[in-house]
Nucleic acid binder design. Structure first.
Lengths: 350, 350
DNA sequence: CTGAAAGCGCTTACAG
DNA sequence: CTGAAAGCGCTTACAG
């Protein structure tokens, strides 16, 4: 009838509550045999620890926060789903709050939130992950934080990301493999971390295949549909236009398709187009866009894991603040090439 | 230094903890003067109740759940932000879980989740809000639930929604006001609640302005870009084509713009287009789409409020399960007409 | 490696 | 309308 309590487990296993607690927290040494008995009892009773009791006794809130600043709705959604599911499964609760760097008094807002809610750690998605202000305040508050897809990797806070340059390289090479040697590129907003990395990947792919990089094939965009449209028009109206275009974002790729259609260039028959992000628009439009999927949800899960690991290690002694983040490969996640309908092989054999 | 506790407040106010508790929960009668003293003490100490202690003492989890089933990422995002902020501000925690009706064993999954996590109430966004299975199981479990934008309003569970028919009426009338008398309509998926309501609104607007409803101006779509594209082509290639098209979703409206452009119809100069939803695509494309914004986030907030109200009232006696939901106007939220760039006045004066 | 005691900060009855 | 007592289910020291 009633849910099993730790007391019940202890009784059934024939040990003290203390031992059960130790088995669950997995921290102190317990004899294997004792552990097995306890595990069996937990299993039999379908015991679920009471998180409220745990928080109260340990004087910890078990609360972590995710702050976001006007990214796209789809992006926050994925972020929240990932962070929420992981924090729940690890016994933490998540508070979510938007934080506008330009209008809010970030310092006061941050301090108030952390103090009042007793927040133990913070997840920072872009662009907050690159905000020097926010990073500084958090350092001063001495509260652990983990960053998602930051531009700079020279900060002590750990981070998770994906290899954007490599992804850009891969999708460019996919175009080249299909026979394209005239590949246009539409850059993203110069202030955004991804823009440079994606351009980097594009360049490397061309170099690897001994294709000259033509300045007129590279157009500046701003990640928006509108900017992409103009850039694409510039590209397709060239005297010697590219046969394929890599736009640094899906919005710009969608615009490229519109621009092509407007100029009577069938996609992908006469022009291949690829994007980046796998935003909703990528599968909404027709033909569906070939693009790169960022594992946003997984990044949020990994970030949450990292943060909770840090909270469990650090027993509130403030050590190793100076040590660089142990950035191991596990925190660089896999992207995925979404091969859909906007790429075709060139007609002419090279 | 340390955060204030209820004991501190009681001491400062010169009363017992019990009185402080009563002031906070706002449930029992407290003399005004006493209340004021307590409030002042709370203020001075910046006291924040410890939610863990409260949950433990009251034997309540203070946990509500939101289940979702593959809606668009943007939609879940807004939903989560709304539900999360509201539940936090009211001292509840939110667990979020996806629930796939077709592949999961819904009954087992639901029961396990509710039992193990001690979930007190549930928020059901569409299409789960119309799932007879899920509704039945929740009724059997005797757990309060609130629905968002359900199709059927004959169920005992309360709901929040917006007046889709009225919104469709308004945006159609906006077209008519601009001089359009030849207004095409692209219907949504026949299974989806919104489709019929939106068609209803379209029809009412035409009727009000004494415009005949022409069968050839009404095309069936499925909410997808692709289906909208075909429907739009059918419309613009008519011998006597409409001068404006109302597509029941933004994806279909975006497709309509593409189709128009393909047929050398400038938007909005030669064809006005409006959509419904205010999805990300609406402001991504160019020209930016005139459409109706659903207040998804506000709906989630309201739903959360409704649910928590129900939890606080019902002291676990299971009464009034038979009474119809008190569906007052507060639970029908305001939509917003997003007047952007895809509507122009007709050249010819009527 | 294991246990007995105390206490975390509230709320629930129960009195008055 | 207000209060004193007990207890929610854990974890933190402290012993052994």
């Amino acid at each position: 009838m009633k849910t099993a309590t730790m007391q019940d487990v202890a009784q059934l296993a024939g040990v003290s509550m203390m031992t059960v607690s130790r088995v669950i927290s997995n921290e102190a040494k317990v004899r294997d045999k004792t552990r097995d008995k306890v595990m069996a009892a937990i299993e039999e009773l379908d015991y679920q620890p009471n998180l409220s009791a745990r928080s109260l006794a340990s004087a910890k809130s078990h609360l972590i926060a995710l702050f976001y600043q006007n990214p796209s709705e789809g992006y926050v959604g994925q972020l929240l789903i990932g962070a929420l599911s992981k924090s729940q499964s690890r016994g933490y609760n998540l508070v979510v709050s938007s934080l506008n760097e330009t209008t809010d008094d970030v310092e006061t807002a941050l301090k108030a939130l952390v103090r009042r809610n007793k927040i133990e750690g913070i997840i920072l998605p872009p662009p907050l992950s690159d905000s020097q202000r926010v990073l500084d305040i958090l350092m001063a508050l001495n509260i652990p934080a983990v960053r998602i897809s930051p531009q700079r990797d020279d900060h002590p806070f750990p981070f998770v990301c994906m290899d954007e340059a490599q992804a850009a390289f891969d999708i460019t090479e996919h175009l080249i493999t299909q026979g394209h040697r005239k590949v246009g590129f539409i850059q993203g907003h110069p202030d955004h971390s991804g823009s440079h990395l994606r351009y980097e990947g594009y360049k490397r792919a061309l170099e690897k295949h001994h294709i000259d990089i033509r300045d007129d094939y590279i157009q500046q965009g701003l990640f928006t549909y509108r900017s992409g449209f103009q850039a694409a028009v510039n590209l397709v109206t060239l005297a010697d236009p590219p046969t394929a275009i890599f736009a640094s974002s899906d919005d710009m790729a969608a615009a490229t398709i519109s621009a092509a259609q407007k100029h009577r260039l069938q996609v992908p028959g006469m022009l291949s187009v690829v994007g980046f992000d796998d935003a909703p628009i990528a599968s909404a439009i027709w033909p569906a866009l070939t693009t790169v999927r960022q594992p946003v949800r997984e990044m949020a899960e990994r970030a949450t894991d990292l943060l909770i690991d840090a909270l469990k290690k650090k027993p509130d002694t403030e050590q190793k603040r100076e040590t660089p983040p142990e950035q191991n490969l596990e925190n660089i996640l896999e992207y995925q090439l979404m091969l859909r309908e906007t790429v075709a092989a060139t007609k002419v054999t090279s």
